[in-house]
């Protein structure tokens, strides 16, 4: 039954919400998923498909009504530092500087004294040397997300949960941070779970893409991304895969203009004509 390669085991998980009028929303219905140690897996799907809910359940920020979530075979009951979480808007503490924000996990766990040098190491790793004393409102959105990632990683978590961390960033910053995430993943071999609504981002970063459908939130299909480690967004295989994911999402009810699914149109729309 137990498999040493599995880090997180999600078994038959249901999560239902009731709004103030008592109306029921099935955010997740009978979700089964096994996340392997060291992989980078993304959840993608239309809004309301429960991708963020699933991530919050793994983090222990929310609890399922039915089913089980196991991390290394022990049930997830509450949030903990071994499951680092990066929120959509960073959620940096505005009264703390960049280095204080990064150090907060060490302080909370009472290991700051012995692990203090890590702070500088992680600031260097995310390329924010020189901004140690800056306050969150003084840095850009992209820098803030780098700090949020470093803040979670300094605890050396078993899994890093990223909840649309690049959703609010402009296209250039986003690509830049995607490269950073991939580099961090290669260097640390931390298991990463990424929630995204960006197909390219999912393909560029992941080993597996979990496509979800809404109402009720379910896993529709899991696509293995078998691309070479050095990924190229203009590669033929990348474009074919993109088309496949888009088709699946379209069927799953995500509102993508149908013309985007036509590969020739897609190439033109994405401005990739010259690259091929």
């Amino acid at each position: 039954m137990s498999n040493p390669g599995i880090l997180i085991d999600i078994r038959g998980v249901d999560r239902v919400y009731y709004d103030t009028t008592g109306r029921k929303t099935e955010a997740l219905q009978n979700v089964n998923l096994q996340i392997r140690k060291g992989e980078l897996i993304s959840f993608i799907g239309p809004s309301g498909c429960g991708k963020t809910t699933l991530l919050r359940l793994i983090a222990g920020l929310d609890a399922p009504q039915a089913g089980q979530l196991l991390l290394n075979e022990s049930p997830v009951e509450k949030p903990g530092f071994e499951r680092g979480y990066v929120f959509q808007q960073g959620a940096l503490f505005p009264w703390k500087t960049v280095e204080e924000n990064i150090a907060i996990g060490l302080i909370a766990r009472n290991v700051y004294k012995e692990k203090k040098p890590l702070v500088k190491q992680y600031i260097d790793m995310i390329g924010l040397t020189g901004f140690e004393k800056a306050y969150p409102h003084e840095i850009s959105g992209g820098m803030a997300q780098r700090v949020a990632i470093a803040r979670a990683l300094i605890n050396e978590p078993k899994v890093l949960l990223l909840d649309e961390p690049l959703g609010a960033l402009d296209a250039f910053t986003r690509i830049d941070l995607q490269n950073t995430i991939r580099k961090i993943w290669k260097n640390t071999r931390t298991t990463i779970v990424l929630v995204t609504h960006d197909v390219d981002e999912a393909i560029y970063l992941s080993d597996r893409i979990v496509i979800m459908t809404a109402r009720p939130g379910k896993i529709n299909e899991i696509i293995e991304v078998k691309l070479k480690p050095e990924r190229d967004r203009n590669d033929d295989e990348f474009i074919i895969l993109r088309r496949r994911v888009l088709e699946k999402l379209h069927l799953a009810g995500m509102h993508i203009p149908s013309r985007l699914v036509d590969p020739v149109e897609l190439i033109n729309v994405l401005g990739l004509g010259e690259a091929i």
Binding site: P79, G80, Y85, A91, F93, I104, A108
Partner: peptide, 29 residues
Amino acid sequence: TPKVYYEAAKTLGAGESFLLFHIALPNAV
């Protein structure tokens, strides 16, 4: 205090007293 600050602190390993003295109180300054 915004809920997301508590959630962020919890996923970083914060306990109850940390949440009060490092999150809620600074937020109330």
